[in-house]
Design a protein around this nucleic acid. Sequence first.
DNA 1: AACAAGGTTTCAAATAATGAAACCAGTTGC
DNA 2: GCAACTGGTTTCATTATTTGAAACCTTGTT
Lengths: 297, 297
Amino acid sequence: MLVNSRFDATDGTGRIFAHMTAVDKSDGTVGKALAVLDQIASYGRPVRFAELLGDSPLPKATLYRFVQTLTNQGMLQYDVERQTYAPGLRLVRLAHSAWAQASLAPVARPHIDALSHETGETVHLAQLDHAQVLYVDKRNARDPVEMFSQAGKVGPAYCTGVGKAMLAHLPEPELTTVLAQQSWHQFTPATHGSPESLRAELAEIRATGISFDREEHEIGIICVSAPILNSQNRPLGALSVTGTTRRTNLDALAQLGPRLQQAARAIARDAESWVFPQSAAPHTMSQGERPYVRSDA
Amino acid sequence: MLVNSRFDATDGTGRIFAHMTAVDKSDGTVGKALAVLDQIASYGRPVRFAELLGDSPLPKATLYRFVQTLTNQGMLQYDVERQTYAPGLRLVRLAHSAWAQASLAPVARPHIDALSHETGETVHLAQLDHAQVLYVDKRNARDPVEMFSQAGKVGPAYCTGVGKAMLAHLPEPELTTVLAQQSWHQFTPATHGSPESLRAELAEIRATGISFDREEHEIGIICVSAPILNSQNRPLGALSVTGTTRRTNLDALAQLGPRLQQAARAIARDAESWVFPQSAAPHTMSQGERPYVRSDA
DNA sequence: AACAAGGTTTCAAATAATGAAACCAGTTGC
DNA sequence: GCAACTGGTTTCATTATTTGAAACCTTGTT
């Protein structure tokens, strides 16, 4: 049984983004459970069981059991008062590991620190995750303009600077699948509306090695971005410097291009030679020492 | 089959902490899969299959299939080059939701901002998660927030200011179970070594409403902390202001006690009345639109 | 060339997931 | 006050998935 599904949800600020549930491929029970988890996360707010059920292809009893299991496991948190479910804190604990090990953030840290210091603007570090842009780190500009971006947040690939920078260097078979997964929602008049339109720009980006966001995702927000490429030219991530049209303009940002590329190259270099500190290794484990006690807090 | 297990791992800075895998309770296949995920996260570095197998109670084929499934699902990331597994980026995406919805961080934000501004010291916001302290936010006085570099870290409950503040207000049956899960590792000469020793201090903390870390976890690090209690006096979390013995002392920190308590009360009040912005709600879902494509990046 | 270690696949038996339907509150309407 | 809801929880025979010992590859080593 396949449980393919696509979510269109609005985030807190009202923007629409496509969210693919990484599901099925017949990954059995575990896959289905994780799909439920994804579904719950997609609402962006605590949800009641009934609402969940309405949106789910699963039968009542099945969904119920999954939600129970996930709650037991700390992957979901149940609010007795309001009778709602929300993603649980265990995820935060796990994400800390993921962030430290699977993302470019630890490697890139000194480089983006330097960049934000030099430019005084907001710097983003993003990676591609299931056809979407996942922001893994960020340095705020001096005056913190609250923006659609924080570590862990996702955004569309087809209309952001970092997204386009990475797409431009994606090898062909993959690019097609990824483009097919974009929502092509028209955020602003400047947003690309189709794969064809975007492909034209991607060629140019590939040539120059720099991409821009010309208010394609959000009016008043522009950015310049450079891809982080490994030695086989595969995009590992992308860096960007973002500004508002009030305070800067595309020409000014374009000046930062070379500096961005330099930082991107440095990160790529460091990433290849990066080895985890062996000191962090010592790991012992003893079994069955204590019973797990369900937290019913 | 129960898969109880306990990990003792050192984090990057060399501190030892007990890490309980929230497992079993016969949560079926999903529970076992999540245990594997926890195990992998516990190493703090990418691991090879063989090492995983050595530490796992599961038979080769079973563990193998779990790792495959989790990788397919983006919960793990496989490094083809080094043949290692690490927690995957999907967790970062999910954790963003969890952090925003299940933690006190969004509610507490303005309050801890104010606190760190006023004191100029490091402020922590923590919650209790499976007998451990989970830091959910932090203000570094200097640097801006870096989400998962700090949030998501876990620490021991029995020898930190925030941990003791929360334990002091835990109702009895629970307190006993939680105390039984502490490692009682002697980090410094001042570390409590047993439940009895700690219980004495907890009574005092309950009376004063303020707890201190007197270099119990790390030499040179002291802090003052206040619990965040809901209307039924249940600890939802704790706040702390941390300093080094070089720059400050316990008496100076004690002065901040009332201010901390005030902030804690404010957070508790806000948390009770907190309702998720309804605007974030609109959620639609359409099924079977696009196939999920495995990312073999 | 033979060996070893790490990783992957097979397949019948054992186990866990499934979901229709019954059940059990609270709530609302009359 | 009763009856019909609505939303949530449990049951249980059926069905499908997981399980794991063992065989099997594949790659690197002596």
